[in-house]
Design a protein around this nucleic acid. Structure first.
Length: 483
DNA sequence: ATCCCGGTAAACAATT
DNA sequence: CAATTGTTTACCGGGA
């Protein structure tokens, strides 16, 4: 690309710090009016949400369904006095917005006026906070049939993010690039009866939908952007609970489909759902002493998270663990994109879930058994499963030759190579093979192993991980020899 | 310093 | 033939 950066890139790069100070609403913090009563209330809400989530999970509802339900809960809660307070300060120490009455309340952030949570007008011409993958995901999710031709994806993006109307046309290339490369997106065989013109329909691969949702939830988006929020100064042993995902951008379909309710999925609540399931075994579950990487996690707390977690500072009934309840969600989009990092002892973790996993894995070397909640073992099992799967993919990639490509070869979420389709085949045939043939046995084996691990979810998960990695290493060697 | 990731550009093939 | 769509590679910058 050279020294001259494309305008779009330029517009984006400084965004994390600079743009946040204008047009965006301030983050939210717990009010100083957090009374014991409201703490209990918060705890109740936490329980309700947890139960709600558990139910949704049990019924295999989509996150949207759960969001609908949780909205009601949050609504009822919002009427009971939860208030926003002092906005966080931006890195310059100045309020991003005057803390006047116009400052949006927490209700606004959670439930209300989208424009107060994200200044739509101001944000319209700013590059959206979402990656292209998220944009595509939202577009497809917004489609009645959950599938869209590229053209309509363009259209959706343009409609919801006017920024792109004036952006350099390269973004369309990026969209196509993403569709092609990202395993989350699947081409759907066109219905012959209704020709849509060129190209095919694109849909979300259910297998990766969770991850896209995760990505959406974790989009570094004001006001919970890690760059803005103040990292937690809590001692690591304090419960870092209710880590929050950023709210959905007000223009998102998820937002609109909830009747204009700005939703966010309080991860802590979700996690709490998992915790509840294990509560019988571990009545007092404390989060892991999280590795330093957890700073990012703590940075993205939302007001409710803080609010609720403060409620927990008192010896609480609720001490949800850090790890996600959703095993499959334990890979985030970006990090989950490379589960190799998820569970690799030497890999960096940039996610709260991953943090747990990291500690888990490291605990093999440096045991910290005392602080490890059951859930983290579950997570660990998931991570181990992911690791195994990824190791499998890695092996396949390694054997795919020098042309593996930096991007395509680096991500689990990339297609073709990671799926082990023969590189010797013409591209189209590779694609076709991917569609026609179910995942290869190796992959399936790994998935089965992963599934087993997920169910094991036991204290020995870490050991399992090691064991399987060893087995995997052998497998990789065999693979290499075969090729 | 290195790796990973997302974004971008570009080349090219396939399709309409 | 042109435009669009799909695939792939290469590179860059930021962040961890």
């Amino acid at each position: 690309m050279g020294p001259t950066m494309p305008p779009s890139k330029k517009a984006q790069s400084p965004s994390s710090g600079a743009s946040a100070s204008q047009g965006m609403s301030p983050p939210y913090r717990q009010g100083d009016a957090a009374t014991a009563a409201s703490e209990a209330e918060a705890a109740d809400l936490s329980l309700s949400l947890s139960a709600s989530f558990s139910k949704a999970e049990d019924e295999e509802l989509t996150s949207l369904s759960w969001l609908h339900e949780s909205t009601d809960l949050l609504n009822s809660f919002s009427h009971s006095g939860l208030r926003s307070v002092s906005p966080l300060q931006d890195p310059d120490g100045q309020h991003s917005r005057s803390p006047s009455s116009s400052s949006p309340s927490l209700e606004d952030a959670l439930l209300g006026d989208a424009h107060s949570a994200y200044d739509l007008a101001a944000g319209a011409n700013r590059k959206p906070p979402y990656s292209f993958s998220c944009l595509i995901f939202m577009a497809i999710e917004d489609a009645p049939n959950k599938r869209l031709p590229v053209k309509d994806i363009y259209g959706w993006i343009l409609e919801h993010f006017p920024y792109f109307a004036s952006a350099p046309t390269g973004w369309k290339n990026s969209v196509r690039h993403n569709l092609s490369l990202n395993k989350c997106f699947k081409k759907v065989d066109k219905d012959r009866s209704q020709s849509i013109g060129k190209g095919s329909l694109w849909s979300i691969d259910p297998e990766y939908r969770h991850n896209l949702i995760q990505a959406l939830k974790k989009t570094p988006y004001h006001p919970y952007s890690p760059g803005l929020a103040t990292p937690s100064t809590s001692p690591p042993t304090l419960p870092q609970t209710f880590h929050h995902s950023p709210p959905l951008w007000s223009g998102s379909p998820l937002f609109r489909k909830n009747g204009g309710v700005l939703l966010q999925v309080p991860r802590g609540v979700i996690q709490n759902g998992a915790r509840i399931r294990s509560q019988a075994l571990f009545p007092v579950i404390r989060p892991l002493p999280v590795s330093p990487v957890g700073s990012r996690t703590s940075a993205i707390r939302s007001s409710l998270g803080d609010y609720l977690s403060r409620g927990q500072d008192s010896p609480s009934r609720y001490s949800p663990p850090l790890c996600s309840e959703d095993l499959q969600d334990d890979h985030t989009y970006s990090t989950a994109k490379s589960p190799s990092r998820l569970c690799s002892p030497s890999s960096g973790m940039d996610d709260d879930d991953d943090d747990i996993i990291a500690v888990e894995i490291q605990s093999d070397v440096k045991p910290e058994p005392r602080e490890i909640p059951l859930d983290s073992h579950i997570t660990s099992a998931a991570a181990a499963a992911n690791y195994i799967s990824q190791q499998s993919l890695r092996g396949q990639r390694r054997s795919s030759g020098p042309g593996a490509g930096t991007l395509a070869g680096s991500s689990l979420w990339t297609k073709n190579r990671a799926r082990g389709i023969s590189d010797t085949l013409p591209l189209k045939k590779r694609r076709a093979a991917a569609v026609e043939k179910p995942p290869e046995s190796d992959d399936e084996e790994m998935k089965e192993a992963a599934g087993s691990l997920l169910h094991l979810a036991g204290v020995r998960a870490c050991l399992n991980n090691i064991t399987n990695r060893t087995a995997k290493g052998q497998k990789e060697q065999k693979e290499a020899l075969r090729n």
